[in-house]
Every structure is written in C-alpha cells, then in structure tokens.
Design a protein around this nucleic acid. Structure first.
Lengths: 145, 145
DNA sequence: CTGCAATATATTGTGTACAATATAATTGTA
DNA sequence: TACAATTATATTGTACACAATATATTGCAG
C-alpha cells in the first residue's frame, strides 16, 4: 500500500506537526498572557527588552527572527502601552533605539510567574530528555542555512 | 549568575525556537510553493483534499487544526482557483461538502516532487534519529490536553 | 565633493490565525 | 409540537507575518 503520493500525506510531514505544535503552545500561553494584556509576540519582545534594556530596532528584529513589517507596529503597540520608549541615535539619525521604561520593568514582576505556571499546568508535559532533545533539534533547524 | 528572572530569558524558552523553526520551515517551502501559486496553508489543505477527495468543512478544520475563521476564506480561495468544489449535504442543509476537482488532481502531479526537493535542498537537514524524535515529541505536544 | 550603493526603518498589500459573534438548520425534550 | 440547546458554518475584529516598495541617512568610490 505504498505509492508515490505517500510523501504528500499530511501524516508523513514533519513541517505540519511543527506548525501545529507552535500554534498550540502559543494558544496555551494565552490565558496567562491575557492577564497581563500581552499577546505572545509582545511577550517575547518584552523578554528581549527585560534582558537587554536598550537596543536598536534592527537588533530587536534579529533577536526575534521577525522583519520590520512585523516589528514596527509591535513597537508602536508596546510604546502606546508605556513599556518602551523610542529615541534616535546621535551618531546615525536613521537608527531608532528602543529602551525599556520603569513601567516595563514593573511588568517583568508580573510576568515572572508565567514560565512556572506553564510548567505546572502541564502545558508542555515533556520528559527532561525530550525537552532537551527538542530544544537542540529546533535550534539546529533554525541555524541551518 | 543565576537569578529568578532567568526563566524569562528568550534563550531559556522552548516555545520560542518552536515558533521560529515553524516559521522558518514554512519560509523554506515558499520557493517551491510559489511555482504552484500556493501558500503553505493552501498546500496543507490540498494535502488533505488529495488524500480524502471529499469531506465536510468541519472535518477539514479538524484535520488542519484550524478554525472556521481561517478555513472559510481558505476554501473560498481554493474554489476560486478551481481546485475544489462546494456542495450542500442532502441530509443536513447546514453541512458543506468540499470535493476535489480534476484540476485539483492535476495539481497533485505538480506537487509530488516538493517533498523530495525539500529534502535534497537540505531545508531540514536532520539525522534519521532526530527527525523521528522530533516527529514523536511534536505529536505528543499536540495530543496533550 | 558628488553621486550611488548600502543601511535603517516604515508602509502597503496579501494571507493567515483565532476569539467572539451571528445565523441558520437540526435535535432533543418538556 | 413548540422551543431551547446544539451544531455547522460564516463574518467581524484584532494581531500577526512577510514580501515588496518607499524614504531617508550614511558611507564610499571616483
């Protein structure tokens, strides 16, 4: 029962469960992020801000693997919420610097429980070994090119 | 150098590489799908159609792990391209039946090379073991709830 | 020092995603 | 048998995601 079209079956794809699992995990974050009035994309952007405090828009794009068409409105949104500020670089007028605000730092305190809540609610209930393997394999895919 | 905010670092997330790898793989499909004038979502929908030939809209949603808000316009699009047809169920007037057309079957012939091209172009260059582990782990995430 | 390539960012257009809501048909039930 | 609950699908609203294009600034080659 093996024919040349088997390769086009959904169950034989690796890309498909990757795509579904990604959306599924983001969906499972939603209840926790809703409490902070953050979307998933805004959440990962804030993770970068919490760690870096201040960086160029291009650097933020690179950290998030997102292009300016996505990041530009994202920055507008986070600025309107008061979590970040924008300023122009003195040396190069083209460059925008994104900087976290005090309000953004306060948000960090509210967010710090999310990762443990995700684990406790069994949102991604993997063995230590599977989690480590998944992490390694995913980064090996991302870094290929 | 271990503090309570480490859990909020992007590099310590499992969700983030999952989200990035998913988008990355879809991006790598793009050159191949562009030749057929298909988006990734349209491609996986056609995979279901090639296999099932005919099914209810609800079933298509379930196969793809997508809701009607996504699938409704997707069906309109594939219908406008002539790959599928729509009809109402006789027994239950609410139910729409999606059926593949001859043109849709022809498209299958053009698509059948895509999976091997993806492998040959090293778009997801994993060892057999890593690929199998990834597949298993991803489905274990999807099926949790 | 001038024009042109490169860089940084923003905008536009198309296509998802999904929650929430709406609507119509069907089913179960008092 | 009316009618409430359920089911199937569509629509609306918000937020990505990215390719393509536009614009402004900078750097560099001649």
């Amino acid at each position: 029962m093996n024919d040349k079209y088997d390769c086009l079956k959904l169950e034989n794809q690796l890309c498909f469960p990757l795509y579904v699992a990604s959306k599924e995990i983001i969906r499972r974050y939603k209840p926790f992020l809703d409490k902070l009035d953050l979307t998933y994309t805004q959440y990962i952007a804030m993770m970068v801000m919490w760690e870096k405090k201040s960086l160029k828009v291009t650097e933020l794009c690179k950290c998030l693997f997102l292009d300016t068409g996505t990041v530009s409105p994202l920055i507008r949104k986070l600025k309107s919420k008061g979590y970040i500020e924008l300023s122009r670089s003195k040396e190069d007028e083209r460059i925008q610097i994104v900087t976290i605000t005090d309000k953004g730092e306060v948000l960090k305190e509210e967010a710090v429980d999310i990762p443990s809540k995700m684990i406790n609610s069994k949102c991604m209930n993997l063995s230590k070994e599977d989690a480590e393997n998944l992490y390694r394999i995913l980064y090996s895919i991302i870094q290929q090119d």
